[in-house]
Write a protein that binds this DNA or RNA. Structure first.
Lengths: 238, 238
DNA sequence: CCTAGTTACGTACAGCGTACGTAGTGCGCT
DNA sequence: AGCGCACTACGTACGCTGTACGTAACTAGG
């Protein structure tokens, strides 16, 4: 009735090549790599259909043969960085393996600081995501709980990794984009926080800031959070 | 040297009114409320400076007197929904109180589905955010650990709430924006997942899907995740 | 009272996603 | 073998975005 309609919305469900017509000049991997390159160099806002097309050396609208909507380009990008996970044989120590996975995810996100911003609103079942998920479950083979619990562990851990790393990146980028130095920015921030705290409305926040006002080791904070989550699933926790 | 420069980057650090010149026609709260109204009705992509100005009944560029950059408008929006947290006297049971806080955050996000997308990349020290943080610490008064641990608990819990709710919203919106029904979408999705799983490359994912393929209770999944996180901090855990 | 700093806002510009139309190409079917 | 159709390629154009800049009106501090 309504003309076209009813193609698969999810890019992974549509075949990369149908066999009819001229050979496509690029693969999805080519396109994803170009977009990733641009995002790494100029941030997520530099990723426009025009820029990606230019990077590939083709007309802007040609891109739409491969990527029906820009949102799908994002999906390709997430999948592309997912390929950077180094899948290795599980060691038998599920805690150590999961920590390694989490640290690797964090490293990937620090390498591609736009990833966390894309994580909300992405389908989540790209080939490399599935590959990584399967790998996590393999690492959890020694843990004797139902698969339902294992998937909850993976979801929880990934969530923590994403939010923690997103925060690290956000604060880092904020200070980077400043025309002034990091010290100045921190001074302004502390001054503001101090002025708020000084009103007496936030006594516990004030106490918390008093407790440790030195420079914080983000890596250590991250590690502690991981251990906490794993503790919650460890039957042998002491 | 370079002309202007060096105004506070963070909107909360600049005063709402300086005392000089004509009385401003709106407050920050007015602007935030207008933006929230638009986002609730038309999604985050409907929030443009022009739309917000029109909603307020003023010229587009007048908005820039109040909000130097669009990013700051987002900041106002996050603060505005933060006001929806109902701060009530802690009960003495920190687990119950924190679960209540988390459920309330989840409810707010479901009421304003654009919140999770804005959480990455926002400053995080708006007045209402500080208020909420202070409240969480107050709820944790009965827990006898250093403030450092308490703030880590709050951060971890908020992270979990955000990612879980973001996922719920993402899948819900995906099926809503379909021209076809939810059943059809699910059929396509299951068909795709099934085709992937059928390759034999993901045996554990296959097993996990076999284990429970019925409709899942998202609320219960969320609750379990909360309990897990709280377990990790509970000295009295059995 | 004067004047500097503010509010208000119209205009303008560069860039965005993408609908649409047209031309060329090569696989699959008859 | 060759027809036809589905595909690739891409230029043009439209409506929208954020916001720099200039101008006019206004008001509080010195």
């Amino acid at each position: 009735m309504a003309g076209k309609a009813a193609e698969p919305q999810v890019i992974w469900a549509r075949p990369e090549r149908t066999g009819r017509g001229p050979r496509p000049a690029f693969t999805r991997a080519d396109i994803a790599a170009a977009a990733v390159r641009i995002a790494d160099a100029g941030g997520l806002e530099a990723v426009s259909m025009r820029h990606v097309a230019a990077e590939l050396g083709c007309g802007t609208m040609s891109l739409y043969n491969y990527v029906p909507r820009k949102e799908d380009l994002y999906e390709l990008m997430i999948d592309a960085v997912g390929a950077e996970h180094e899948i290795r044989e599980p060691s038998g120590d599920w805690r150590a393996d999961m920590i390694r996975n989490a640290e690797e995810t964090r490293a990937i996100m620090h390498r591609h600081t736009w990833v966390p911003r894309l994580m909300s609103g992405v389908y989540g079942f790209s080939p490399n995501t599935l590959r990584y998920l399967e790998h996590c479950l393999a690492c959890l083979d020694p843990l004797d709980v139902p698969y339902g619990v294992k998937t909850e562990l993976v979801a929880l851990l990934n969530g923590v990794v994403t939010t923690y790393t997103a925060n690290e990146i956000a604060t880092a980028e904020r200070t980077r984009s400043m025309p002034w130095s990091e010290e100045e920015e921190n001074a302004v921030r502390i001054a503001y926080l101090g002025s708020q705290v000084a009103t007496g409305a936030y006594p516990r926040l004030a106490a918390a800031f008093m407790e440790d006002s030195g420079p914080i080791d983000l890596e250590a904070v991250f590690r502690r959070a991981l251990e906490r989550v794993l503790d919650a699933f460890d039957p042998d926790r002491g």
